[in-house]
């Protein structure tokens, strides 16, 4: 049984407890996305005379988007490996690559959304589009939030090197990044693939 942890004995314990808390946050975030997925699945055929998934999804675009995000998850894993080896420089380089891929992903999404809106397909067009924008947009804002956070951590790592605190923070952002990747796989399947079928 887990107990006996004296919280103030050392930084190591203190830092690991924050990672455990972050796992619980991820649990709650899974449920947040779960509710959005449920909403999307209920409303995904409620076109109300508006466009269907087939009409608006660009297979090439969302495939590239998916590869970009999956690759960024891989590079973020490489950054963690570098961190475990104690290489500050390698970690930072891989994190920068991860962030660049992340920006590319967000760029694709902004492009997709603005194209749709310019064509007159907005949230107010139909329940299907409301659910689409809400689900994909929530994921996108998670990614954007992660990017700002990642930049802050890159600066902190460059500045302070590896300490128990920076290491804990880097572990947490990599958890977060992989989590967003996992969510995207479900969006890719449920929204896009099934949508164009």
């Amino acid at each position: 049984m887990i107990h006996n942890v004296e919280p103030h004995e050392g930084h190591e314990v203190h830092e690991s407890i924050k990672i455990e808390g972050f796992w619980l946050f991820l649990v709650s975030d899974v449920l947040l996305f779960g509710a959005l997925f449920a909403t999307f699945i209920v409303l995904r055929t409620h076109y109300a005379g508006g466009p269907t998934g087939k009409d608006i999804f660009d297979v090439q675009e969302f495939t590239i988007e998916t590869f970009v995000l999956l690759t960024s998850s891989f590079t973020s894993g490489l950054a963690t490996l570098e961190m475990n080896k104690g290489h500050v420089k390698g970690t930072i380089i891989w994190l920068i690559i991860t962030a660049l891929l992340g920006f590319t992903f967000v760029g694709f999404e902004i492009d997709e959304f603005s194209t749709l809106v310019n064509e007159g397909y907005a949230m107010s067009t139909s329940a299907f589009l409301s659910a689409f924008f809400a689900l994909v947009g929530t994921h996108g804002s998670h990614v954007s939030f992660g990017l700002i956070w990642m930049i802050a951590l890159i600066i902190q790592t460059a500045w302070r090197g590896f300490t128990p605190i920076t290491k804990r923070k880097l572990s947490i952002i990599s958890l977060y990044w992989h989590f967003l990747d996992a969510v995207w796989i479900f969006i890719f399947t449920v929204v896009y693939l099934i949508g164009v079928m």
């Binding site: 947040l32 209920v42 409303l43 409620h46 109300a48 949230m123 409301s130 809400a134």
Partner: peptide, 25 residues
């Protein structure tokens, strides 16, 4: 959190999650 967000989007951005028209439920 999601429920309140969706209701707010209905009211703020003209979405149709829970409206009577445009396929809302």
């Amino acid at each position: 959190t999601v429920t309140m967000l969706l209701l707010f989007l209905d009211r703020f951005a003209g979405a149709h999650f829970f409206t009577m028209t445009h396929g809302g439920d």
